[in-house]
Amino acid sequence: MRSARQQPFRTAVLILVWGWLLFLVFTPNLLVVGASVMTRDPGTFISLPLNLDAYRQLLNPLYLEVFLHSLYMAAMTTLICLLIGYPFAWSLSKVARQHQVLLIFLLIVPFWTNSLVRTYALKLILATNGLLNSALMSLGLIEEPLQMLYTEGAVIIGLVYLLLPFMILPLYAVFDDLRDDLLRASHDLGAGRFSTFIHVIVPLTLPGVLAGVMLVLLPAMGLFFVPDILGGSRNLLVGNVIKNQFLDARNWPFGAAASIVLTLAMAFLMFAHRLSKRRIGEEGV
């Protein structure tokens, strides 16, 4: 090994990268962990003594209800994304190669488009005197405009709309890898369509499902601007709670504790994803 003196470039790069990540990733996360076990302080945000009050507060029925409601909406979002995305990715992988490129492109255009603007566009459609109600009324299907905006459903629709590509892309990746000869082999060995689906397709696409769930479920708990625009004050996400605690209520320990719970959920999902990949003999990411 040559000494650092002989490789100034290498040394400089490593110092820069490590410095950046230690200062802007490691330290901040440590601060959040620290903040979560300290005491709320109106002046300096946090102060000693150390305690677990913030975590106890998470179990307060009032917040517990908000969390469970958020989890419910995130779970519904994920489920709907999966139900829409699974057949979508499957169909996409069956389309002729040269068209797939264009279709994937069309799928990621929204991803590159400002998500606030897209959420706002949904508002145009869902509002009481918005497009959907006008359309339904002019078709004579309803008499009175329906209350669609500021409902739980509106929040879920918004989240699905924003997050669907994140479910489809990993699913498409696994379907794209799923070779036709495996399916033919399964049929050849006497399995019917249903058996092939259960015993071959599902296990092989499971890593994609879990990757999709990971990419949808967590943001679906954090994207606070969706309820702000579409959901009103009754349909809050964990993200809204954290934001309120940090920016409005100034209860840092509580906000930090809530975000640690989110992080733990992420860790759990990542672990499950790794496990599923290892089962089919692929290296974890």
Binding site: P28, N29, L31, V32, L218, P219, M221, G222, F224, G239, I242, K243, F246, G255, A256, S259, L262, T263, M266
Partner: peptide, 8 residues
Amino acid sequence: PEIVLAIS
């Protein structure tokens, strides 16, 4: 989640 990065 972005929000975790944000508060940290």
